[in-house]
């Protein structure tokens, strides 16, 4: 029972990280119908910037804020400079551009900070909580992880549903042409959408870095799990992205704990294929068809 509790809590905490990456992918997919393959590299880059800020100031809080701000900026620049020219073009062009950005950022990070992975501090201790004389795997940092992602997810949810700007962002995602007719500056909304998505991604980078260490290619696997979580949730649904992340985290945690950690990547793919076979639109797909 103790082991089950450990694995469950551990699954929720790593699932929240996948959820943040999935949220980043879903926000961009909804707004531009582009899968951002560079998301893993973007969050790697912002985590390096956070690491640099922590080294300079000695403050984790500063590094954390810098990471999110860098995410906003990198997301906005990526959209304005690289993605804008291929928006509305053949989907393959956008795929190639985001893959190119992935390679570019990984190479740049290697040139600036070197290819040897370095450690990245957690916000709080990773020593598990003591409950009734026995120690859990679940640590204060895990609690922080869950809380931070929840705050960002709920904040984004409120922003999209409760503000005029959020309303215009959603409208632009549904139908850019009609939105323009109604006076919405769609191009600005797309830039903002990419910025918010990249900020959600950079949160995941800071949270996962203590576990995977910080190196130019160390976050590639995070993108794979984030993508799986996004597809589980249906690619179009932010709520689905968060749920998909937690479901994936739990499944992978149980597989790793009860079977073998070597099976984790395999389990992720099996889950992905199973969902695509049973519910191709994802767990949160709507019955109504949507024009793509």
């Amino acid at each position: 029972m103790h082991r089950f509790l450990d694995l469950t809590l551990n699954g929720v905490s790593s699932g929240m990280i996948y959820a943040a990456v999935a949220l980043a992918l879903v926000l961009i997919w909804r707004a531009t119908r582009i899968v951002n393959f560079a998301q893993g590299a973007m969050l790697m880059f912002t985590t390096f910037i956070a690491s640099w800020a922590i080294d300079r100031t000695g403050s984790y809080v500063v590094g954390f804020v810098v990471a999110l701000a860098a995410g906003l900026v990198i997301g906005a620049i990526a959209e304005r400079v690289l993605v804008r020219p291929v928006e509305g073009g053949p989907p393959l062009n956008a795929v190639i551009v985001t893959l190119g950005l992935l390679v570019l950022l990984e190479a740049l990070a290697g040139m600036i900070w070197g290819n040897i992975p370095r450690s990245f501090p957690p916000a709080f201790t990773i020593r598990g909580f003591d409950v009734g004389g026995s120690r859990l795997l679940f640590s204060p940092f895990d609690l922080f992880t869950v809380g931070a992602v929840l705050v960002v997810a709920v904040g984004l949810g409120l922003f999209f549903t409760r503000t005029n700007l959020g309303l215009r962002l959603r409208a632009s995602a549904f139908d850019p042409e009609v939105s323009r007719l109604l006076g919405v500056r769609v191009s600005r909304m797309l830039t903002l959408g990419w910025a918010l998505a990249a900020a959600a991604g950079s949160l995941a980078g800071v949270l996962v870095a203590p576990a995977v260490e910080l190196g130019p290619t160390n976050f590639d696997v995070v993108l794979v799990y984030g993508f799986t979580a996004a597809v589980l949730g249906g690619l179009d649904s932010p709520t689905g992205a968060v749920t998909g992340g937690v479901v994936l985290g739990l499944v992978l945690s149980y597989v790793s704990g009860y079977e073998s950690s070597a099976l984790v990547p395999l389990a992720s793919l099996v889950l992905l294929i199973a969902v695509l076979m049973v519910r191709p639109g994802g767990l949160f797909s709507h019955a109504a068809a949507r024009r793509v």
């Binding site: 309303l167 215009r168 409208a171 139908d175 939105s179 007719l181 109604l182 006076g183 949507r290």
Partner: peptide, 29 residues
């Protein structure tokens, strides 16, 4: 996107409503 501000509005063939927004939200935009 500036036409609406200049006082020109247009409806489209069909309806062109945003499927994921409520009727009220559609009109609020």
């Amino acid at each position: 996107h500036r036409l609406a501000g200049l006082g020109i509005a247009r409806t489209l063939q069909g309806v062109g409503l945003f499927p994921g927004l409520s009727v009220l939200e559609n009109v609020m935009i």
